[in-house]
């Protein structure tokens, strides 16, 4: 296989691996732009992955699975919302709680119902998101340069991948070109001003948290019903935190979120590809270094060495209408 083909394959797996990050990071974007910090992306994603695979396996239908994933994720998002918005609790603590809750309950319930050590049964094809062949992909595969790009990179992904890219555009439009988006951003920067304008801060934040839940649901369903064909305990494996890192890396902006997720997905794909590979002159690059790179980059960014990451000003602070 030539260098070009293997590079295309690398980009292809980059796209696949970035998708859960992308959905989760966009989810975080809505929540954090409204002033609700969310370190519970990981947990919501995991719970959704479980629900999608479990219902998918029982019902044999991919859409019911997706719906279940979204429903469970929104449920957890509402718990987070209740704790942070209504009960004015600590948003970080609530996020930590959601992560534990999801990690524990998915494995526990999975074990109790399916008796496979927390796994769900292997999903049939009708309960999965399968690759979509674009017209003419096979015929064009032999065309030099453009053929492989069309066949590997553009065609042959599942529906959620294409939806992910669409969601970036939709999110950009919603956040920067609609009244809702303006209010959402305002509520995360200066909730008192939004309140003065007669808009309910509580309602805005709940809406944001629910959207966050829906997108985390998509991220989770992608993990268990598109990327793999069953749920495995703790299958989110820190992706929610990488998504959080990507969100910060992208400075809470939709299009940069796409780039950040693709970058982190690329590092992931590269890490897998480079396992045991000897570079001429350098030797083997430690896989662990590549795996840690998203986190290191985020720390460096946060430290202000590559631009400055300014979070929404009212983030993490519950809004008190009257004192």
């Amino acid at each position: 296989m030539g260098t070009f083909e293997s590079f295309i394959l690398l980009l292809d797996s980059t796209v696949r691996l970035s998708m859960p990050l992308l959905f989760a990071a966009l989810a975080g974007l809505y929540s954090e732009r409204s002033g609700v910090f969310d370190i519970g992306l990981e947990g919501k994603m995991l719970a959704a992955a479980f629900a999608a695979a479990a219902i998918g396996a029982l019902a044999g239908n991919v859409w019911l699975g997706l719906l279940a994933g979204i429903a469970v994720s929104v449920g957890l998002a509402l718990v987070h919302g209740f704790a942070c918005i209504t009960a004015r609790g600590n948003q970080i603590v609530s996020g930590v709680a959601i992560n534990f809750l999801a990690a524990g309950l998915t494995a526990l319930i999975g074990h109790a119902y399916f008796s496979q050590g927390g796994r769900t049964p292997r999903l049939e094809n009708e309960a999965r998101f399968l690759p979509i062949e674009w017209p003419g992909a096979e015929q064009l595969a032999d065309v030099p340069f453009l053929g492989p790009i069309y066949e590997e990179l553009i065609s042959g992904h599942n529906l959620l991948v294409y939806l992910g890219f669409v969601m970036v555009a939709v999110t950009w439009f919603v956040i920067f070109r609609t009244r809702f988006g303006l209010r959402l951003r305002a509520v995360g920067e200066n909730p008192a001003a939004v309140d003065t304008a007669g808009i309910s801060v509580t309602l805005m934040r709940y809406q944001a948290v629910i959207i966050c839940g829906v997108l985390c649901g998509l991220a989770g369903a992608y993990l268990s019903t598109a990327q793999s064909a069953s749920f495995v305990p703790n299958m989110s494996a820190g992706k929610g935190f990488i998504a959080l890192a990507a969100l910060i890396f992208a400075k809470w902006k939709p299009v940069p979120v796409l780039y950040a997720c693709l970058l982190f997905g690329f590092l992931d794909a590269l890490g897998i590809r480079l396992q045991g590979y000897e570079f001429p002159g350098i030797g083997e690059v430690p896989v662990q270094l590549i795996q840690a790179l998203p986190y290191i980059l985020t720390v460096v960014l946060l430290a202000g060495f590559i631009g400055k990451a300014e979070p929404p000003k009212a983030g993490g602070v519950p809004y008190v209408k009257e004192r």
Binding site: V79, A83, C84, A87, G89, N90, Q91, V93, S94, V96, A97, I98, N99, F100, L101, A102, A103, G104, L105, T106, A107, L108, H111, G118, P233
Partner: peptide, 16 residues
């Protein structure tokens, strides 16, 4: 995993 879930519940109710 039950313990992890209980841990989450304790953090939720005693914390958040």
């Amino acid at each position: 995993d039950m313990i992890i879930a209980i841990q989450g519940l304790v953090i939720l109710f005693a914390g958040a």
